[in-house]
Design a protein around this nucleic acid. Sequence first.
RNA 1: GCGCCCGUAGCUCAGCUGGAUAGAGCACCGGAUUUCUAAUCCGGCGGUCACAGGUUCGAGUCCUGUCGGGCGUACCA
Length: 572
Amino acid sequence: MQEFKRAIRESLAQHSGLDSNTIKLERPKKAEQGDFAFPCFQLAKERKQPPVAIAQELAAKIGADLQRVEVVATGPFLNFRINRSDLSASVLKQIAGENEGFGHSREGAGKTMVIDFSSPNIAKPLHVGHLRSTIIGAVLKRLHDALGYTTVGVNHIGDWGVQFGKLASAVELWGDTVDLEGDSIRALLALYQRFHEEEKRDESLAERGREAFRELESGKDGSVRATWRRVTELSLRELSKTYARLGVSFDLIRGESFYEDKLEETIERIRASGVTEESDGALIVRLERKGKEIAPALLRKSDGTTLYATRDFAAAFHRWDEFHFDRCLYVVAGNQKLHFEQLFGVLKRMELPWAERAEHIYFGMMTLSGGLKLSTRDGQMIFLDELLDRAVEEALKVIQTSKKFADIPNPEEVATQIGIGAVIFNDLKKERIKDVQFEWDDVLSFEGETGPYLQYTHARMCGILRRAEKEGPPADTAPAWAQLEDASHLILTLGRFPDVVRSAAKACEPSEISQYLLSLCRDLNSWYGHAEHKVLGVDAPLSAARLQLVNGAKVVIANGLRLLGVATPEKM
RNA sequence: GCGCCCGUAGCUCAGCUGGAUAGAGCACCGGAUUUCUAAUCCGGCGGUCACAGGUUCGAGUCCUGUCGGGCGUACCA
């Protein structure tokens, strides 16, 4: 399909005087209008001629150039329609040839993307709020992998700070009262909460916590460090189970603690650039936005200790030194915008050439229905594992009540794919900056605009292809490409997939893929729902052509879902 | 107070770097299954694109202001 677009652009450029690279071919609102459109208003202004006249003039000239494309002037618009047979053959042959690779490219070859995502705290359970960074980050990584980038997925674990002194103390005090080895995270959470409770009554506990963290920071390899190490290991073990369920993996799991011995040099590096100053005893960097001063970045507190931001600076420098990235994405909620503005603001004030390469990819907040915030503190929490369990359970119920239950050899496995797919897709459906309200009904709904809807459509295509092996036309039947005219809108959509992948990656917007897949499946189901569009049991060349369409759709849905991290069962 | 983000159908959302008659899902009502999977499809209902100005040949999309909601506002992470 690209070859037709290129030809249209070149001819258009030649006859209009525009640069072929800047010509934007739009998609007409209505399919009947054509495959691509070019509005002539801009040209009309430059040439001081009516757009309708320009459209007519160009239509005649371009029409003479292009044999396989019909060019029609509709008012001020120039509409292009690729010859149906050529369109079908071009798109569907390409998909069949490239298969899993359709949508992939090498355009990012040689470029490195560092993607920081998920980044939970040790010793706290993942709740539904953590889903967003994890899921979105994982999609961004897969998207860039598909485009040939070298990607480095980093999990910047929160494993440092006074709270870990408290936790270590709690483990030392009451560790034997809970099941640390078995249900680690829940046990740690209970200990942490107990510490908070008792701290209110017993002031010595707070001091004990601070003292423990001081020992930790001192680097002394004593009992506190041993406890901290144990807590870290237990937590990571639990976390990795949840990541495995979500199909998410990292290239680098590196806690904040990793930067502990690099904080002094980090502060020195910033101080040496001359941007720092003392204020109320603290070391800060003043920053402004559009000429107005904003909250400064803090490098060191007035008591001499460092803070979270200091470790983020250390991480940024270290990442640059290690990877020399082309882009470094921080997939973190939007409520941290100021923090990243400060982080990047300092890099810019230091005039580091790579400062512009770091980006905060932010997303909306997750709230519970009724506007309640998710937080460990007030107990408003839905554990991620529980959510996944429940989604799988619900999926299993649907499978068991279905008529085709008997045809599914592995219902538990399929229920897992569907339940978890539903949860993931639900998180990727909307534009990422929008806030999401958590509703059980929405997450567990398997009808309408959902992951299972896409999976189901995919499974049906698989079903046809399976059956075609037995009942279909002979393998060497030449497809009657010209007879796919009633599906040309669908074919055009399939041909657009590589553009969608590229655009979603560029904008770091997974919802471009999800929305594309929804609209593709809607069109596909609609086409397929017509009795006259039978794939099998029709004239062999027509059947062969429709099978190519079914295969193309199956491949694109599968490739799209794979990018999103949603499984693609062949039967459901 | 100040800053950032959001505001499209009863609800949840699409609407491509401004372009042709603003589209889906849910809910509600009515249809389709001896059929290549009904987790589907078809039809109906439903809109002053928050409001007011402005820029433009053209604004849901850009600018300004107002209202409403969310988030954030240096020694937490």
